[in-house]
């Protein structure tokens, strides 16, 4: 059916433009897929950008082994349904090879360890562009990021000397060994992503919706109880609570929020009314004032 004039969402159209630039300017792009809502949104945008052709690049998941099982199941289902190519590289392998060391103690997490596995995978496949779902509203170092962000062959971000980026002209010219991190949804806010998921009726992992879960409290945050993965003191008692996750990273660094929002409409309403930022439940950002910037310099997303 023909519709009259297209009603445009400027953020969606900008993201589609960026994804097409990636496909045109690079030889081996890859979409970094975590199973979280932002990378799921990227997959939908990529479908739109290249329709009726298939998405012309694979997805890659850097698997810490500490993911929520619901995320992994969702990932596998999505890839199968859309007929996409999925590459998985495991942090456990980097640990086994002695390249990184498992953190120990109360706040131990594999979050920072992902960087080594990611950089190795980029080298293994010779990826020249890695598309990610990072947004500028998430964190103040991310607020500084360009759409096309050049990394040297150590994966480092030279934050004080970024390429000028004018209008929507994206310069993807790089030397061999360098790569570009691409952020098509840079200008989206958390609410923009949720509203898009609602409007487009995009399926997301069940842990984003309210469910009963065995949890314990620490530093005012609610942690999922899984003694294999999440460190817990003996006096931190486990209780069943009605919760959901607002952001999905590793079990060891992502806290839940008390919520009864059980479908997309109630989730969007909850985000609109929230007085806490999305990454308020991410312990990886709270390590220091410059936690994100330091990780980015080392090649983290």
């Amino acid at each position: 059916m023909h519709k009259n004039t297209l009603d445009i969402n400027p953020l969606e159209n900008e993201a589609i433009y960026i994804l097409r630039e990636v496909a045109a300017q690079f030889e081996k792009p890859v979409l970094l897929f975590s199973g979280g809502k932002d990378s799921i949104t990227l997959v939908r945008l990529a479908q739109k950008a290249f329709y009726p052709a298939k998405i012309p690049f694979p997805l890659m998941h850097i698997d810490t082994g500490h993911n929520f099982p619901e995320t992994i199941a969702f990932r596998d289902k999505l890839v199968k349904e859309l007929g996409l190519e999925l590459i998985v590289r495991d942090v456990q392998d980097s640990i086994n090879q002695g390249k990184v060391k498992e953190e120990v103690g109360k706040y131990s997490s594999r979050n920072a360890l992902q960087t080594t596995t990611l950089l190795d995978a980029i080298e293994e496949f010779k990826f020249d562009a890695c598309i990610g779902g990072a947004r500028r509203d998430e964190e103040k170092a991310r607020a500084k990021e360009r759409i096309f962000s050049v990394r040297d062959d150590f994966g480092q971000w030279d934050e004080k000397n970024q390429r000028p980026e004018l209008f929507d002209m994206l310069n993807g010219q790089i030397e061999l060994g360098q790569n570009v991190r691409v952020f098509p949804i840079s200008n989206w806010t958390e609410l923009d992503v949720w509203s898009y998921i609602q409007k487009e009726d995009i399926e997301i992992p069940s842990i984003y919706f309210a469910h009963l879960r065995k949890t314990f409290l620490r530093d005012g945050l609610i942690w999922s109880n899984d003694d294999e993965i999440v460190y817990r003191d003996v006096d931190e008692t486990v209780e069943e609570r009605l919760v959901r996750f607002r952001t999905v990273g590793d079990m060891s660094c992502t806290a839940a929020v008390l919520s009864g929002a059980s479908d997309i409409d109630t989730v969007v309403q909850e985000i609109k009314e929230s007085t806490i930022s999305e990454r308020g439940a991410r312990i990886d950002d709270k390590r220091s004032e410059a936690a994100m910037e330091k990780r980015k310099q080392q090649g983290y997303f």
């Binding site: 059916m1 519709k3 900008e14 589609i16 097409r20 009726p52």
Partner: peptide, 19 residues
């Protein structure tokens, strides 16, 4: 034809990313 994803349109306005 003007396509935006799997829908066809009569008109594409400025700033739209179409095929």
């Amino acid at each position: 034809e003007i396509l935006f994803y799997d829908e066809k349109y009569e008109t594409a306005s400025r700033r739209s990313s179409v095929t």
